[in-house]
């Protein structure tokens, strides 16, 4: 296994920023290093010099490289008990609102956005909700927009759905086509997909609920604070912020302004 040196990594990050505007300098170093080592091996560069040459001179290759640096692991109803808490503790408090705005920041291929749409539909709230789904990576968004997932995943997703408190027949939300499942258009109708870079872009609306799950783990503390402040600016009083199972507000300035909900990584803005 190849191992990039710290100095070499700095050279690459500078190239990516200066030539292409991608700023990875505040990504969590240890895992970014693994990602770079992984692409280096996968694409079989014989030396660091050759990897760097390709990055500096092949703007087509950059697309692949950047896509491989970001992690796009996701699933429907990921951590089912988290979704159960959304059903029982969060959505009922939003029901009285005339309009509900939700932002999935770093939505990847969209599985959690469709999960959310199903929750909203079952709570009778989908018709007055809007789900903004953003990611840095246009390719994963294109895939999310299609509302298609591999049929082989549906058994697991269906189990997650039941664990999340779902009581309907999960298969009524999609139609099977060859080896794929396509979600009902009705679910996608309330979704807006757009690229958004958490490192450099600003807030674009005010939301009742922001979900950003297993994205912050890839950022260093300074960038985490920046992104959490961006979320804070985008949340009204009594709105909610939801993070991944092992992420926390503990090391940020938001801690004192938000009250955690019992057990799950959901916080409510109280100041």
């Amino acid at each position: 296994m190849v191992m990039i040196e710290d100095e070499q990594m700095d050279l690459l990050l500078t190239d990516l920023f200066e030539r292409y505007g991608y700023d990875f300098t505040h990504y969590a170093r240890a895992s970014l290093k693994r990602r770079i080592n992984r692409v280096w091996s996968l694409d079989k560069f014989p030396s660091f010099a050759e990897l760097r040459y390709r990055i500096r001179n092949d703007s087509e290759y950059i697309k692949r490289f950047v896509e491989e640096l970001t992690v796009n692991v996701t699933e429907m109803f990921r951590d089912p008990f988290f979704y159960r808490a959304l059903r029982t503790d969060v959505l009922p408090t939003l029901a009285a609102k005339p309009f509900i705005r939700i932002w999935h920041a770093g939505c990847s291929t969209g599985e959690e956005v469709f999960s959310m749409a199903i929750l909203l539909k079952e709570a009778g709230l989908l018709h007055k909700s809007l789900l903004y789904a953003t990611d840095i990576n246009p390719d994963v968004l294109a895939s999310a927009r299609k509302g298609i997932v591999a049929l082989s995943q549906m058994k697991q997703y269906s189990e997650n759905y039941v664990l999340s408190g779902g009581v309907a027949d999960f298969s009524m939300y999609y139609t099977a086509q060859y080896s794929y499942a396509k979600f009902l258009d009705e679910l996608a109708e309330r979704m807006v997909f757009s690229t958004h870079n958490l490192v450099s872009d600003r807030s674009f609306n005010e939301f009742d609920l922001i979900l950003c799950r297993n994205v912050l783990i890839y950022f260093d503390k300074a960038l985490q604070q920046r992104v959490l402040s961006l979320f804070d600016e985008s949340l009204g009083l009594l709105s909610y912020l939801a993070l991944g199972a092992k992420e926390t507000l503990r090391f940020s300035t938001l801690e004192t302004k938000y009250r955690p909900l019992n057990g799950e990584k959901i916080w409510r803005k109280i100041v």
Binding site: A28, R29, A30, S31, K221, G244, F251
Partner: peptide, 30 residues
């Protein structure tokens, strides 16, 4: 994620995450 690595505690890797350590001796999950 991001908690300092301290002696005197037994840390367990959480299900479904890789555990990495940064040079400043904080944990990073992946």
């Amino acid at each position: 994620d991001k908690e300092p690595v301290r002696p005197g505690i037994i840390y367990l890797a959480p299900a479904d995450y890789h555990v990495l350590i940064e040079r400043d001796r904080t944990f990073a999950l992946d």
